[in-house]
């Protein structure tokens, strides 16, 4: 089983996000980076599938700056066999631009499936996996919570609105991981040691100039300070009154 997993380097979910002086990006000071959480889920699943099959390889692909070497080593320590680092010289681009870089560097390779996170936790687009599938002419199943790949067929459970769909698809195909698909492992010491020796292919990959421009980044609208209505059940009537008369939501 040859599996590709696309991973993105993103600010840690607990990071404080401050707008940089240019008003267009974030201030990098003190911001820790990690593999986007859904991508870790996709990676874990890919490693489990490979381990169960007892054959094949998991390749992680990351389009990111030079610093993404850290996240790539982390992915190798979590069980990926090799990596492709598409080095991003920087510049703005939308999901279509990112997807083009990924698709262009995957197209000529051999694989049974490509796994993505359902969404990156910085761009929050939920788009790149679906676009890559279109660009490569492959079927895609999104929001996958359970996945089995064998004999050229994938069977996925998909979290649709109000129910779980069991979807069957011919391989090669694209899947995007939803929470529940797998629990990412912590790398073992042995895993970390082995990661140092695993191959990383480095390719300079400028993204096509997109037709998107980030004009401004702003902090979210502050919520007006709220009030503590009171303590314990005695405060309930006052709360209900406020919800009816002031907030008018009930």
């Amino acid at each position: 089983m040859e599996l590709f997993v696309c991973i993105k380097r993103v600010p840690d979910s607990a990071a404080k996000i401050r707008v940089a002086a240019d008003g267009k990006g974030i201030d990098p000071a003190g911001v820790e980076h990690v593999i986007s959480p859904y991508d870790e889920i996709a990676l874990e699943k890919a490693v489990q599938i490979k381990e169960a099959a007892g054959a094949g390889a998991v390749t992680v692909i990351c389009f990111g700056p030079a610093e993404a070497t850290k996240e790539i080593r982390q992915a190798l320590a979590m069980g990926a066999d090799k990596a492709i680092h598409l080095k991003d010289p920087g510049g703005a681009r939308g999901p279509l631009g990112v997807a083009r870089v990924l698709a262009d560097n995957i197209r000529a390779r051999k694989f049974d499936a490509i796994l993505f996170g359902r969404q990156s936790i910085d761009g929050d687009n939920s788009a790149v996996g679906i676009i890559v599938a279109q660009l490569l002419g492959l079927p895609v199943v999104s929001l996958v919570t359970k996945l089995e790949l064998k004999d050229g067929v994938g069977v996925a459970h998909r979290e649709a609105e109000g129910g779980t769909e069991v979807v069957e698809v011919k391989l090669p195909a694209v899947f995007t991981a939803q929470r529940g698909l797998a629990e990412p492992r912590y790398p073992s010491i042995k895993g970390i040691m082995m990661a140092k020796k695993k191959p990383v292919e480095e390719i300079l990959a400028p993204a096509p100039s997109g037709r998107l421009e980030i004009e401004k980044l702003s902090p979210p609208a502050e919520r007006a300070a709220g009030k503590i209505v009171g303590e314990g059940k005695a405060a309930v009537p006052a709360l209900v009154k406020l919800l009816r008369q002031e907030a008018k939501v009930i």
Binding site: P95, L96, D124, N125, A127, I130, E161
Partner: peptide, 23 residues
């Protein structure tokens, strides 16, 4: 930007080479 729209928006953007503004 529903479950369905999150599948179709990106797919349509790719199929028509359009910019996608998501969610």
């Amino acid at each position: 930007a529903s479950v369905v729209g999150k599948d179709l928006g990106p797919a349509l953007a790719a199929a028509t080479q359009s910019a996608l503004l998501a969610d």
